[in-house]
Simulated scan of single mutants.
Amino acid sequence: MPLISSDYSPPQFYKSGHLSTIYCGLFRRVNGLVQNRERLTLSDGDFLDLDWSKSSLKTQKLVVLLHGLEGDAHRPYITGSAKLFNQNGFDACALNFRGCSGEPNLLYRSYHSGATEDLKEVLQHILSTKQYSEIYLKGFSLGGNLALKYLGEGNDIPKEIKAAVAVSVPCSLKDSCDQLLSNNNLLYARRFKRHLISKLRQKQPLFPNLISNSDIKAIKTLKDFDDIYTSRAHNFKNALDYYAKCSSLQFLPNITVPSLIINAKNDSFLGMECYPIAEAEKNKKLYLEIPKYGGHVGFWGKQNITYTEQRSLNFLKENSFEAYSL
């Protein structure tokens, strides 16, 4: 589909990409959502924690929410989305990726931008309950890349999956990594690295032969982390091999369910390759919206509902079973 025009224009303060990112990431609060946790045992013996929230209406619609790097199911961008969907007749299942639910996962491996095998197990589990005839995916940043990769990498997509939305997506992981390594994003990169190294230290006593003190000391940048841990733990040659194989950009031409990407023009985490204009123009199921403002998973909105939360709800309603039946 052609590029979708965007009329998003927040108050002056939130037109700053950095201020929008920081406010929604650190200061926004979402109240009134009730989540219930389910632990799913995976086929390899590890586990994922799923945080469910339900609509007050009986529904067969479900949104599966996928968080970003070092996020979790309690982040405001997840809970805000879940709350709005619940209020509009959708149940929500928010994944906590391996090691992201407040408890270390059991294996040496963890999560990463292309770990669609975990998403597939979650979807199989949901489908086995036979409770939902319509399932939608919504991912943020890393989770957005994961959702798009899953939809386009050649999986047998269940008929119940009707549409997807991906927000602030690093469609090219190398391009995004290059941006994060720039001086413009130094504070964000340091924060991510600090969290990642902290989790690696938690794993170290369980896997002393695989994680050494010298390895941890050698991690100076996010790319170093992917060279030293992510690639080794998940069977990639190195960080560049990981980025090349897991970037969703290459899979976008194969997506066959309606999918909306919303990447702000002033998102400092994204380089030019993260705006897949040519891919969207060639694929009638792929929609790309590039608002001028929004930052990275920011998009301030009135009444504590972000622009992308309302936009996602509208898009999924447009592509629901009921919409096709009218």
Score class of each variant (00 low, 15 high):
residue 115 A to M: 12
residue 98 R to D: 04
residue 8 Y to C: 04
residue 70 E to K: 14
residue 18 H to N: 09
residue 48 L to E: 08
residue 21 T to C: 05
residue 170 P to H: 01
residue 100 C to Y: 03
residue 224 D to C: 02
residue 85 F to E: 05
residue 237 K to Y: 14
residue 198 S to H: 12
residue 188 Y to F: 12
residue 48 L to F: 04
residue 83 K to R: 13
residue 135 I to Y: 02
residue 229 Y to H: 03
residue 266 N to S: 08
residue 175 D to K: 08
residue 234 H to M: 05
residue 86 N to P: 01
residue 265 K to G: 00
residue 236 F to R: 07
residue 269 F to Y: 14
residue 284 K to F: 06
residue 49 D to S: 03
residue 177 C to V: 04
residue 165 V to C: 14
residue 305 I to F: 06
residue 61 K to M: 03
residue 200 L to R: 01
residue 169 V to R: 02
residue 162 K to I: 13
residue 317 K to M: 13
residue 248 S to I: 02
residue 214 S to P: 01
residue 12 Q to I: 06
residue 2 P to T: 08
residue 303 Q to R: 15
residue 50 L to C: 01
residue 198 S to N: 14
residue 185 N to L: 05
residue 238 N to M: 03
residue 37 R to H: 12
residue 286 L to I: 09
residue 28 R to E: 15
residue 235 N to Q: 10
residue 287 Y to T: 00
residue 168 S to N: 09
residue 103 E to T: 15
residue 125 H to V: 06
residue 305 I to P: 02
residue 319 N to G: 01
residue 72 D to K: 06
residue 29 R to S: 13
residue 223 K to H: 10
residue 300 W to M: 09
residue 326 L to V: 07
residue 194 R to V: 04
residue 216 I to R: 02
residue 93 C to V: 12
residue 306 T to L: 10
residue 255 I to M: 12
residue 313 L to R: 00
residue 30 V to K: 03
residue 155 N to S: 10
residue 272 M to N: 11
residue 65 L to Y: 07
residue 269 F to T: 03
residue 39 R to D: 15
residue 191 R to D: 11
residue 41 T to G: 02
residue 155 N to D: 13
residue 18 H to R: 11
residue 170 P to Y: 00
residue 313 L to A: 02
residue 105 N to F: 06
residue 161 I to T: 10
residue 172 S to L: 07
residue 57 L to Q: 14
residue 38 E to M: 06
residue 240 L to A: 06
residue 31 N to Y: 11
residue 89 G to A: 05
residue 258 P to R: 15
residue 94 A to V: 04
residue 159 K to Q: 15
residue 132 Y to S: 07
residue 146 L to S: 03
residue 209 N to T: 10
residue 67 H to V: 14
residue 184 N to R: 10
residue 239 A to G: 05
residue 233 A to K: 03
residue 310 Q to K: 15
residue 318 E to L: 13
residue 197 I to N: 04
residue 263 N to F: 06
residue 268 S to H: 08
residue 70 E to I: 14
residue 231 S to I: 10
residue 27 F to R: 07
residue 185 N to R: 11
residue 3 L to P: 09
residue 138 K to E: 12
residue 250 Q to L: 10
residue 56 S to I: 05
residue 261 I to W: 01
residue 11 P to R: 15
residue 21 T to W: 04
residue 159 K to C: 11
residue 251 F to Y: 15
residue 96 N to K: 10
